[in-house]
Design a binder for these strands. Structure first.
Length: 593
RNA sequence: GUUCCCUUAGUUAAAUGGAUAUAACAGGAGCCUCCUAAGCCCCAGUUGUGGGUUCGAUUCCCGCAGGGAACACCA
């Protein structure tokens, strides 16, 4: 279905053409003076030079051709040459009814859908998720959903950090603590136990302990490196122990991501490409791309047009060991071979920008990716505390993600209880907790996603839990209001199906309709620019338009059945659009709050 | 040191080169016998600085000041 702006631009272009001007000048845009008009066209000013004519004269010529238009109800040419436009009630009504009937509200889906792999989350096993992981998960999940909704085939991969020295450290510390474990007996040839010899909380304590020890103690570090080597070279007991670490850790990660409503299609990690690294390195050498520099193996990636220094991309460290670059490149190779994607999207902290420039160039140069495969790194900003510095707990530590979520949820339960009390109804504990979880998640996600991803933003617990203004809970509250009306309507024995939206009867209703009609253009932009914050801005405007309409219109007590049905249809569409949008942002609305 | 990014109201954030820069919070005033007041409504307040391009600049270009980040054996 064509976008509203395209349809009305077409009408305007026709008028420009009929008046003897270039039709391309007839591009219509949203009004930035809503007090004067709904839409505007600035083509007359752009054409002034070409036709050596005052812009206002051109605008008047064009306006004359639109006097009996079905699309524009009001057209006025004003100084210096703006065309101020209002569209007819009939036109907007038909547009919305078509939208309501169409799949995805008439969003145009691509002729050639792409296969996209999106790499986000990126946690390390055996380490708890902390607030730093929040953005990658929240933004990545939203982008995944947006691309999928837009019609592409999307695969989300968590890309676990499960292979490096950290694993050797954990194994070493376990050996010190429990040297008699069967895993350390080289002569053992039987089956290893199915149960892990540790719990997730032990694991989370072991890693930092081991890490601290290795920094202070050379011998300890040597042991850890040896353990890493044994693991990577496939010693049975070490592999079995490693598998336990992965299993225990992944189970915990799944639980945590589930609480965030974040899901991955693939749970692959660095370890999955271990076996293909030697072959890849060999190819790079053979192709003449990789050479030795200061003992390390590198590939030059600087280009003549660079204004800045782009250091070579390191493939192997001087001790021959692989590093982040190596596994990332091997992962690209693996993904190309297994999935043949048209596009790879990476979500990380924006500080890794230069790093990804190096890796992408290296991948292209060495032929790991096809010419027409797009590589995109989306760097997001830091989540800061109120002081503008990276978010910390009160005592200066790194805050665990589950603690952050718990704090928000507790505050939310308090608010729900308080609200129930002032309104005088009972709320049982379980229902309150369930609602709190839903609303809390919306607060966190909307708070994050409503900012441009690339910018740092301030996570202000007080503001996020205050629930006033431009927040997730405000959006949810609006949806709950609509649902409540629709439910009451159904309770009257009526049905929501087959209702038709009529012409708007007042300004607030027309505003709501115009807001709904912007949906397609907004969604297209949000997809193209991979910009979830545009969806946030849109649903905030839409919710505002609805609340304004709601305030002025008594819907259920309306006696004119036709009017009432039209409003119910309009509300249904509003609810559906809002719910689709919040789903793309990765949260949902409760039935009441 | 080199390079990149950022600077919008008291605060946090928006704005394909278009008219009077948009909201939220905080501040001040109003609206619940009426579909959820987590709402609605009114008031007050902003583009760091100096140039340039343009009919028109928060937006594009150059300089300055202030803030942040990156710059091969971490990820």
């Amino acid at each position: 279905m064509e976008k509203l702006l395209d349809l009305i631009s077409e009408e305007m272009k026709r008028a420009f053409e009929e008046a003897g001007y270039d039709r391309e000048l007839g591009r219509v845009t949203l009004s930035n003076r809503p007090d004067l008009c709904e839409f505007q066209c600035n083509g007359a000013m752009a054409g002034a030079k070409k036709y050596h004519k005052a812009p206002l004269m051109i605008a008047q010529d064009v306006a004359e051709k639109l006097t009996d238009s079905d699309v524009f109800g009001e057209v006025s040419a004003v100084a210096p040459g703006f065309l101020n436009l209002k569209i007819t009630e009939t036109f907007i009504k038909s547009y919305l009814n078509e939208m309501a009937r169409s799949e995805k509200f008439g969003l145009t889906t691509p002729v050639n859908p792409k296969k996209i792999i999106i790499d986000y989350g990126g946690p390390n096993v055996a380490k708890p998720l902390h607030v730093g992981h929040l953005r990658s998960g929240v933004i990545g999940e939203s982008i995944k959903r947006i691309c999928r909704y837009a019609g592409h085939e999307v695969i989300g991969d968590i890309h676990l950090g499960d292979w490096g020295l950290q694993m050797g450290l954990i194994i070493t510390e376990l050996q010190k603590r429990q040297p008699d474990l069967i895993y350390f007996d080289d002569s053992y040839e039987g089956e290893y136990p199915a149960e892990a010899p540790f719990t997730i909380s032990e694991l989370e304590e072991i890693y930092p302990t081991a890490s601290a020890k290795s920094k202070a103690d050379e011998a300890y570090k040597a042991d850890a490196m040896d353990a890493t080597y044994k693991l990577q070279s496939g010693v049975r007991g070490y592999r079995a122990l490693w598998q336990h670490i992965i299993d225990v850790s992944v189970a915990d990660l799944k639980k945590n991501y589930e609480n965030l409503n974040v899901t991955f299609d693939l749970w692959k990690g660095e370890s999955d490409v271990h076996d293909i690294i030697p072959g890849m390195v060999e190819e790079m050498k053979k192709g003449g791309y990789a050479y030795e520099s200061d003992g390390a193996l590198v590939v030059d990636v600087k280009e003549e047009t660079d204004t800045k220094e782009v250091p070579p991309c390191m493939i192997l460290k001087s001790d021959g060991a692989s590093l982040y670059n190596t596994t990332d490149l091997a992962t690209i190779l693996d993904r190309m071979e297994q999935y043949h994607p048209d596009k790879l999207i990476y979500l990380t902290d924006k500080r890794q920008e230069l790093y990804f420039v190096q890796v992408f160039r290296c991948a292209r140069k060495t032929g790991l990716v096809k010419e027409d495969t797009e590589l995109l790194h989306i760097g997001f900003g830091t989540m800061n505390g109120k002081d503008g510095k990276p978010f910390k707990t009160r005592d200066g530590g790194v805050m665990r993600l589950e603690n952050l979520i718990r704090e928000i949820n507790e505050e939310m339960i308090r608010k729900i209880r308080e609200n129930a009390e002032t309104k005088g109804y009972e709320v049982d504990g379980e229902a309150a907790a369930e609602t709190a979880k839903i609303v809390g998640l919306a607060a966190i996600k909307y708070g994050d996603l409503s900012n441009q991803a690339s910018k740092d933003y301030i996570f202000d617990m007080d503001r996020f839990t205050s629930f006033e203004g431009d927040t997730g809970p405000y959006i949810l509250y609006t949806i709950v209001r609509i649902k409540s009306i629709l439910n009451k309507y159904i309770e009257q024995g009526k049905k929501l199906t087959d209702l038709v939206i009529g012409e708007p009867v007042n300004d607030s209703e027309k505003s709501l309709m115009l807001e709904l009609a912007k949906y397609n253009a907004m969604m297209e932009t949000a997809c193209e620019e991979v910009a979830p914050h545009k969806i946030c801005a849109y649903i905030y405007d839409l919710a505002n338009a609805f609340n304004h309409f709601y305030h002025e219109t008594k819907i259920l007590t309306e006696e004119d059945e036709q009017k009432k049905e039209s409003w119910i249809a309009l509300l249904t569409l509003t609810r559906d659009v809002l719910e689709v949008c919040i789903d793309l942002l990765g949260f949902s609305a409760p039935d009441r709050m």
